Amino acid sequence: MKIHVPDTAHFDALMVDWIDGQGRVCAVNALEARELAIKIADGESLPLERIYSSTSAQVLRGIARGDQPVRSGLPVWVNSPQYSEVPMIATVAADAARGIVVIKQPLPASVLGIGPELAERVEILSQMIGAATEACWCIEFLEPVDTSLAEDEIVERIFANQSRWRACNEAMARLYRVPDGTDFNMQPVSRYFPATEINRQMVRDLVRSNYRLDRAVAVDRRHDGTEMLVENDFRAAIKDGFLVRLWGTTRDIGAHREREQQLTDRADTMQDILSAAPDPILVVSEDGLLLAANPAAESVWGRTAEQVLGRPIQHFIETRQALDKLRQAVLSGEEGDGECELAVIAADGSRDVWRFRAARIEGEIRRYVLTARRKARRRARSLTEAAS
């Protein structure tokens, strides 16, 4: 049945778009362009999913291709710039020049059989996602993935099957440095989530974890093509054995991992330096427990690190109130040499006086670094020197 529609110029208060025979939006009226923040240049077109939900898009695509008859009173869901879906009632008619024309007006949720409370919850969730500071995303598979296939085939199809971004928020666009005025949701999924080996392994882990995975590391690409190390939390929607949707959150962990590597490199360097130092070096906690000792300390005093770590330093020092003396040395070190003399008891029971230089390490837990040098013993004067 062919539905006659008057000149659309009279529908200034209604949203109108035209869909060509390929099932793409080729034109919109001024109201729809303004309300949905879209613009179509002459000769260009947009996928239906830019304006409609996936279900509504499938129905309209079937009508545009002639697979289904034109209809009036068709309920559709329209994607708003605020990442929510607005229920509308549409009249679809044939247009000789541009395929079909779709004329819409907002429709109360109750008319579509959705209770006011449910509609309000959907609106609240949409607003929360849109305003979230963490990057939220959703990948919708226009070609659902059969989860009964072999693992490798599932992984391959997750990357190969036709899919699109849906309801990705502003934080997601900022994270991937999408230029102002460019809709992230209209970009190809593969542009930011390429089928690299590390990403394939992440998806393989997702499949093995029954499509629920947290803190999964991937290497994505920003809008300009530069790589970005990210961490994802994944959830999935599976209907009738087919994966139809993945969603979750993404965090840029590149700076964090770089900082971790820098700290690890610095720790390795310091360990090499301490291992090569000829003088004994100790690290002591605020309450006097030995936290670390370099190889020179083990060699000179005859005790391995396993034998002394975690024990009070006073157990190995004969001088009374050794910790107080070290603390005093730290305080005097701010104005003087910061040293004190302590008698150390070696593993064989021998005792020698050592000069300790103490320095404080500030942080959440205060610690002291001690560097020891054996105090030079006075040599007895020769008889000749005594007689002179």
Rank of each mutant, 00 (worst) to 15 (best):
282 L>F: 08
257 R>H: 08
313 I>C: 00
297 A>S: 14
284 V>E: 12
230 V>K: 06
256 H>L: 12
324 D>R: 04
239 K>Y: 03
251 R>P: 00
246 L>C: 01
243 L>R: 05
251 R>S: 00
285 S>Y: 08
322 A>E: 01
298 E>R: 07
327 R>D: 00
312 P>F: 03
310 G>Q: 04
302 G>Q: 07
257 R>L: 11
290 L>H: 13
287 D>K: 07
307 Q>I: 00
229 L>A: 00
309 L>T: 12
279 D>Q: 08
314 Q>S: 12
233 D>P: 05
325 K>A: 10
306 E>L: 10
260 E>V: 09
280 P>Q: 06
268 D>Q: 15
293 A>S: 10
309 L>I: 13
329 A>I: 03
240 D>V: 07
314 Q>N: 10
267 A>M: 08
289 L>N: 11
287 D>C: 02
245 R>M: 06
315 H>R: 15
310 G>N: 06
250 T>N: 14
230 V>H: 05
284 V>K: 10
273 I>S: 14
227 E>M: 14
287 D>M: 08
330 V>N: 04
329 A>G: 02
287 D>G: 06
235 R>E: 09
279 D>W: 07
240 D>Q: 15
290 L>S: 09
302 G>C: 04
307 Q>Y: 02
259 R>E: 11
244 V>D: 11
278 P>Y: 05
227 E>S: 15
278 P>M: 10
311 R>V: 08
260 E>A: 12
248 G>V: 05
304 T>Q: 11
324 D>H: 09
256 H>N: 12
282 L>P: 08
245 R>S: 03
280 P>E: 03
326 L>G: 07
275 S>T: 11
228 M>V: 11
270 M>K: 08
255 A>D: 15
315 H>A: 08
317 I>M: 09
312 P>R: 10
254 G>H: 07
298 E>D: 05
268 D>A: 15
298 E>L: 05
296 A>N: 02
298 E>F: 01
252 D>R: 02
261 Q>R: 14
312 P>W: 06
267 A>I: 06
260 E>C: 07
282 L>G: 00
